[in-house]
Design a binder for these strands. Structure first.
Length: 246
DNA sequence: TGCCATGTTAAACT
DNA sequence: GAGTTTAACATGGC
């Protein structure tokens, strides 16, 4: 489920409940779910991989699907006891499973950098560039997972973007040539939108070029698999095609 | 069948 | 107290 583009689809999916009143709320989330009853769902917002449900009475719930989270509408796909959050509206019921559910403190909006979201209209490539310039020692594979810089980017985006621009995951930011640096920022966004479209079509996996591949689609040599950087996430790359700058 | 993975947080270390 | 490492969470696909 959970990279940024999937959250955009989730939002679209549940937009049908906007302005609807919560008739009943349940689930085993570690928050007071009862207080949501009778409240109107005023707004649905995303920031990267996070989903915000803004209710009347200034109550905001944040949902993060983490690695295995899921949701369903009208139909329970898991046992009652494993429902993390259940919101019943007159027009249907929304269920969330295995996710993090958090109630936000007043003023939470100011703690988010809304132009860091790759899938937002507010996405600001220049701001991303400035943040990256401040951490020249950081490896690009780690930078692409940094939600404060590339909010919504995940391990799929990371791997595929790096292959697209033929950049080695263990390149240090400070050593990357200007042209490639610009490409990095441009393609991070572009890949998110391609991801979104492919996910919509159900063809995302089909479009993977490097993740899980044995051979490089460009040169046919063996693909490397390594747990790179401080984040130590699964990284696939071609030593031949992806230039390493250190 | 067991391993591993589109992720993050907080506890447990140094 | 800082920075870093590890564990926990928990489900589905291969």
């Amino acid at each position: 489920m959970p990279e940024g583009p999937s959250l955009v689809l989730l939002k679209e999916d549940i937009l049908q409940f906007r302005r609807k009143k919560v008739m009943a709320a349940g689930g085993n989330a570690a928050i007071d779910v009862q207080q949501l009853e009778g409240r109107q769902l005023l707004e649905i917002r995303t920031w990267g991989k996070q989903l915000f449900l803004l209710f009347s009475g200034k109550i905001t719930i944040r949902i993060h699907l983490l690695m295995f989270g899921s949701y369903s509408i009208n139909e329970q796909i898991r046992l009652k006891r494993s429902i993390k959050l259940e919101l019943q509206f007159n027009t249907g019921t929304l269920y969330f499973y295995t996710c993090s559910v958090k109630e936000m403190e007043p003023g939470w909006e100011t703690t988010y950098d809304w132009n860091a979201d790759l899938l937002s209209k507010k996405w600001a490539p220049r701001a991303a560039r400035a943040k990256l310039k401040k951490i020249p020692e950081t490896l690009v594979c780690d930078a692409l997972l940094d939600q404060q810089i590339f909010s919504g980017s995940g391990n799929i985006v990371k791997n595929e973007v790096l292959f697209r621009i033929f950049l080695h995951p263990e390149s240090t930011l400070g050593a990357i040539p200007p042209q490639t640096f610009t490409l990095l920022i441009r393609e991070a966004k572009q890949y998110c939108y391609d991801f979104l479209q492919w996910k919509r079509e159900g063809t995302l996996k089909k479009h993977w070029q490097i993740i899980g591949k044995k051979k490089c689609p460009r040169c046919d040599l063996a693909v490397q698999k390594k747990y790179c950087g401080k984040t130590r996430r699964r990284t696939f790359f071609c030593k031949n095609c992806q230039e390493k700058y250190v």
